[in-house]
Design a protein around this nucleic acid. Structure first.
Lengths: 337, 337
DNA sequence: TTGAAAGCGCTACCAA
DNA sequence: TTGGTAGCGCTTTCAA
């Protein structure tokens, strides 16, 4: 049987109110003598206050909900670590929800978190915010910070990378290395970051007077296998390219796998660039040229934001925190000039 | 303002008890007419019952706590996915706690979970169970399943790999390929799996009449960086080896990185074997020979076990479920004979 | 079929 | 400095 505050109160011959006071470290209102006695009892009986009962009264908790698209993409664990680090520094815990790349599951998790008195949500939505989800968000008065995306909700707090510029730099890098026909493997087209990256691709092409060719663009899904199949589809559509930019590293690696299987050498025959700079990027051969996101730091910032909002310091929190990309040049791009 | 069961009851002109009945799908005790009306109101006002209040009464929840050592080791996300899959099929949610390779944090999480009425815990302890933690476990009456370890607690439920045999097969493979001086990079020596793997190493050596040389054994910590430094230390101790077995893939990859940096070729000069068969293993060059754990399946089994226990079918749950390893031969071992 | 009411473990307010 | 107590939102038992 679990020991409750009432048990401790009885043993100590005081009221539950008094025990509550020492449990919550209210400095005043408890005599030194009494406090000591209660503290001892708490230790002796290993009393742990029920967070549930407490939550029912206070409507608060020290739990932050975190929704991410896919745990098995190393990008997200890294982000999660950043969030967890500062959360812990401030005494908060994280409940991690893996949306499994599914809109429905994300929505279900949103409900779940709302039912459980988390004190805030950090939301890394994979797809654009659907009406269902938007509705849930607007209805809920929970503090909310978006990470790795910028939904079109006025006044919402977001931390994200300048994705457009990032992809622009990738394409520019390819261009400057003499590539003219550049394939592009996207993410899901209804995702914010994919769209931004796509714009970066288009803009760079425009700025360098390269005609856009829709045959060079093929849709992917951010997982490795999909990079493999996207590569296959691209190759069936056209063989007229010397480089491919991918919307993430996982797909780039999948694409390279396919290319190798077809006897095509990277980067000698085809150059490939990734996105994210996950650990694997520097471990595969050729080492993957990619663009790094300061993802751990982004996690830290998001966590600080949500905690500020939770603790009533929301006014000093900026709406948008935008991070700059960092092109990491390795060995998967050939100099063509 | 959040709408409560009381609000719905008022709008529907019934008692909260009746609303509660329809919310909980109690088939009998509510008139068809009433039920319909309430259901509509619930939809209209988007009523979500408070899991917290409910938990306070029932002392149950649909949340399973999961403690893992380190999210950034791809092994654990994979396991987590397996667990989550089954959990979701049964209407349970996972609250994921990343112990960050720290005993203290694990202990803190154990407390955290106990305070929050999770209905069960799946625990992947990194280090051996300390007395503090053992105490917490014994005191708590929560259903508990250990995964990826077998603590010495009588009657505890565990699912794990036959680690000893797995490493035996690794060493045997090396031996059969003509290696006689085999280095060994361990995990933390107070971890169950490390110890078992170490025994496997020793046993194989014995069975093949290879003298044990303590200079060939060096301690690691299961992270990539540590493989790198372990390799360095090993090399400083002795240069008299042709192969190295590592207690996980991450360290194997770190070790290879160090070897390459020193101008030593894998596998031509030194052979390296990993453990776990995470995705990266087949992506690095040379492709890593390693031993696969059916980790997703292990997660599924653990989840099924805990749910069975939670739902009172604990008697049909076996104490131990042991999985067999699967040696995956790739390109990181040289034939020396 | 329905309602009234107790009570889950705690916090917070008011009174002593 | 302390205690009494209402009430958080729900489930559950008993009675109607």
């Amino acid at each position: 049987m679990k020991v409750t505050i009432k048990d401790i109160a009885e043993k100590a011959n005081v009221s539950v109110a008094t025990v509550s006071r020492v449990v919550n470290n209210k400095s005043k209102g408890v005599g030194e003598e009494t406090r000591k006695r209660i503290l001892e009892l708490i230790k002796e009986y290993d009393f742990q206050p029920s967070a549930v009962a407490r939550g029912l009264v206070t409507k608060k908790s020290k739990i932050i909900g975190l929704i991410i698209p896919d745990l098995t993409n190393p990008f997200y664990p890294k982000m999660t670590k950043g969030i967890e680090d500062v959360a812990h520094e401030h005494g908060y815990n994280i409940i991690l929800c893996d949306g499994n790349n599914s809109k429905e599951k994300e929505a279900a998790y949103l409900d779940f978190l709302n039912e459980h008195y988390v004190c805030g949500i950090i939301y890394n939505n994979f797809h654009n915010i659907s009406d269902t989800i938007l509705n849930k968000i607007l209805k809920s008065s929970l503090p909310l910070v978006f990470i790795d995306s910028k939904p079109e909700i006025k006044g919402c707090k977001c931390v994200y990378l300048d994705n457009q510029r990032a992809m622009y730099e990738v394409i520019e890098h390819l261009l400057l290395n003499g590539h003219r026909k550049i394939g592009f493997i996207t993410g899901p087209m209804d995702s914010y970051s994919t769209n931004e990256r796509y714009k970066g691709y288009i803009n760079a092409l425009n700025d360098y007077d390269i005609p856009f060719d829709s045959n060079l663009v093929v849709k992917g899904d951010y997982v490795m296998k999909d990079g493999y199949y996207a590569m296959e589809r691209l190759y069936n559509q056209t063989k007229n390219f010397t480089a491919i930019a991918c919307c993430n590293d996982l797909m780039a690696i999948g694409a390279i796998e396919k290319l190798e299987e077809m006897g095509i050498k990277v980067p000698e025959d085809i150059s490939v660039v990734g996105f994210d700079d996950i650990d694997i990027a520097r471990l595969v051969r050729p080492k993957l040229t990619t663009v790094a996101q300061p993802i751990h730091e982004m996690g830290r910032v998001a966590a600080n934001m949500i905690i500020d909002i939770i603790e009533g310091k929301g006014s000093k929190v900026k709406d948008d925190v935008i991070f700059e990309p960092n092109l990491v040049v390795r060995d998967s791009v050939k100099k063509n000039n």
